[in-house]
Write a protein that binds this DNA or RNA. Sequence first.
DNA 1: TCCAAGATGCAGACTGGTTGGTATGTCACA
DNA 2: TGTGACATACCAACCAGTCTGCATCTTGGA
Lengths: 228, 228
Amino acid sequence: MVIGSCKLGGMLLARKNLKRRAPRLRDPERTRQRLLQAAFREVYRCGFQSAGIDTILAATNVTKGALYYHFESKEALGYAIIEEIVAEMTRDRWLRPLQRSKDEDPIDALIGIVQAIPARPKNLKGGCPLVNLAQEMSQLDEQFRKRLERIFHAWQEGITMALRRGQYQGRVRRDLVLEETASFLIAMVEGYEVLAKNAQDAKVWKMGVRNIVGWLSSLRAAGNRKRG
Amino acid sequence: MVIGSCKLGGMLLARKNLKRRAPRLRDPERTRQRLLQAAFREVYRCGFQSAGIDTILAATNVTKGALYYHFESKEALGYAIIEEIVAEMTRDRWLRPLQRSKDEDPIDALIGIVQAIPARPKNLKGGCPLVNLAQEMSQLDEQFRKRLERIFHAWQEGITMALRRGQYQGRVRRDLVLEETASFLIAMVEGYEVLAKNAQDAKVWKMGVRNIVGWLSSLRAAGNRKRG
DNA sequence: TCCAAGATGCAGACTGGTTGGTATGTCACA
DNA sequence: TGTGACATACCAACCAGTCTGCATCTTGGA
């Protein structure tokens, strides 16, 4: 909804209000953001190929001219969704929390992250935007695939680095191939998201979280057992 | 290609040749099968929504009249793909091998099955047909979702029963909740298929298989350790 | 055994609606 | 007064689905 209005936007708005009273006529950056957000929602609902330009426009009260002024084509719009929204979501949910947990146990951090993944019906039914797009487009459009691949890579790298820190701290088992362990975690999370999406049942997701958390606990180093 | 011509078709053909020389004019079941196979391939390539009826027809040299004689609508065609092709693939790759391995170690059987999942570039890029359809359609069409759900359920049930047998035989750990363990395995397989599909790299898939196999080995009962 | 007649299986032109994209005009703003 | 930021009418392509017509097959009766 209003998620898109970032701090920068607010600042620009304030600056304008000092100069002129005109509140928000001709605010191209805002228009672009609204289009992006609406496009993301539409793509999240129907997939990229079936997402309708007209539907996006109807949802934003923006006209076609404006859209094609800001984005060269439907594909370009898709690329922007990946790079500016999907990538940001991954950073927000995974990478930053992992970086913030500098001195904590990375396994605790990962458990917290997995448990914090929202289980609202809307998210459940919609699945993971990253997986949705990868599933649909990676085979059809190399441009899509490369951009998605970057996100996957960053995701895996973030987990790997956190686990490496944990190894140095003696909290994570030494016998693990960390890159593979990170991929394994990602595969589990995505796999369960697919299952839950199809089942449309929060229980399925909760079961998944339980099992993933159990598996994560098994990564602790010998002296780091917390609870059964 | 010619997979669709089943034994029944051959028998009918023989019978016909006795009556008249006409080789295969007017063979409705064969026509239906060819349409189904071509439709499956097209849906596998582009997704259901973006699959074009005309493309399917072009691939089969069948006309629109024939298609809409055999299938009420595009959706009906999709349902048939799920129930007759995708479900069959699951039975073929998972359920029957598990049933066949009656007296063997079910964990060995599962390892064999996972390792036997083809890693050809075509399959890698295309991903798992079941997941593809679930990912795309389960949220948009309840009819699709229900049919896919049945397959998932049968899949999970098949694994659960195999593991239960293993428990009776003392080959599988007693502390497992088998239904959850089965779902966990499915989630892992699907998750890695998504990763491999996006990476388009056989190494990713092989790594996945290694890790899944390792995890499967950890399900063995104490007296059933085979190797590292 | 043969033929008539209805049913089956299919051919292919056609349609109405939707789609991404464009061309041109216009208004705000610096 | 020019350029940035739109608005709107328009278009060609596409797409699922339909309709009519026709060949082939099956069936029932003589």
